[in-house]
């Protein structure tokens, strides 16, 4: 076991960082906010922590906390700025935000180290810090999927107008999604630069957005379980695919594309759908009522989806 640990230390560290990154994109997605700002917050966290530790010798956890607060404030401001946007426009505004962060990093002079980035960020972050923070993130996000808060997030995503009619401030939930995403992304970024002791603009570009997105696509955006699954898969998949030699990146691409096209809910979506079908098959129809499908036949009004999308 300790041999395995030593041999795969980098991957084990990356797994926990990846989980936090994936959660930072999953949280807004689940709330119906099509935002990739988590990748930008990752950049903010990575650079702010690295600078704080490098220039002031601050303890790691304090640096992580401060950069987390910075990213939450930035997330809130971003959320306020783009509050009136929806769908693709919001997605692209947040992609632009991410890329602006990386351009700032390139042009930050001595502070950010320009194109080469920062080196020698020595810190005392251990694997226990990684596990602890990742668990904290998971528990926090899992809570938002329970009970009243969970239902309300579902309502904000599926039908904002309905959500308002039952007293939910859609605006507040959306802003909260930006803030939480900012915190999670920032912690992921902080941990990355502190564990690897280096950060450069190439770590936070368009490819980071694609990585975070692929984790969510394959894992599933509806639950933290999907984000964790996706993060684990895409941390361990590339080395496993090394057996394919030259083809490994192509295989990787095929997996992502197939998931995006044919499995919109990701692996978690398949699991939850199967679980639902199982309970549905076991259950008896209500007594004294005609079976639902027979009633439905007698009525010509379009059912379900057609009504909702109107």
């Amino acid at each position: 076991m300790s041999d395995f640990y030593a041999a795969n230390l980098v991957l084990i560290q990356s797994t926990f960082i990846g989980i936090l990154l994936a959660l930072s994109v999953q949280v807004p997605m689940r709330a119906g906010v099509f935002s990739f700002a988590g990748a930008g917050s990752y950049g903010i966290g990575a650079y702010v922590s690295a600078i704080l530790v490098l220039k002031t010798g601050m303890p790691s956890l304090l640096a992580i906390l401060i950069s987390g607060i910075v990213a939450m404030v930035v997330g809130l401001l971003l959320g306020l700025l783009v509050a009136h946007l929806g769908g693709l426009y919001l997605a692209m505004a947040t992609v632009s935000f991410d890329l602006i962060v990386s351009v700032l990093a390139i042009n930050g002079g001595d502070l950010t180290g320009g194109v080469t980035g920062l080196f020698g960020v020595l810190s005392d972050v251990t694997i226990f810090h990684l596990i602890g923070l990742a668990l904290l993130g998971i528990v926090g996000v899992a809570l938002t999927e329970r009970g009243r808060v969970g239902r309300r997030v579902d309502a904000v995503r599926d039908d904002p107008e309905l959500a308002q009619s039952v007293g939910i401030s859609v605006r507040r939930y959306r802003l909260a999604a930006f803030v939480v995403s900012g915190l999670l992304g920032s912690v992921a970024g902080s941990l990355n630069s502190l564990v690897r002791s280096t950060i450069s603009p190439s770590d936070i570009g368009f490819s980071l957005i694609v990585l975070a997105l692929t984790m969510i696509i394959v894992g599933g955006a509806q639950s933290w379980k999907g984000a964790v699954l996706g993060a684990v898969i895409f941390t361990w998949l590339p080395p496993l695919l090394a057996g394919f030699g030259q083809l490994q990146h192509v295989v990787y691409g095929v997996i992502v594309a197939t998931a995006a096209i044919f499995v919109p809910g990701g692996l978690y979506g398949i699991y939850s759908e199967a679980r639902y079908r199982r309970t549905r098959a076991k259950r008896k129809p209500p007594q004294g009522e005609a079976p639902a499908h027979e009633q439905a036949l007698a009525i010509s009004v379009p059912n379900g989806d057609a009504g909702r999308s109107a």
Partner: peptide, 24 residues
């Protein structure tokens, strides 16, 4: 009053097309 506050005033509504959360 904001749309999200009418519920607090105990006004409830239904919609012209059925609006239910599909996955719960």
């Amino acid at each position: 009053v904001h749309a999200s506050q009418i519920a607090a005033k105990r006004i409830a509504r239904t919609f012209q097309t059925v609006r239910l959360l599909p996955d719960v």
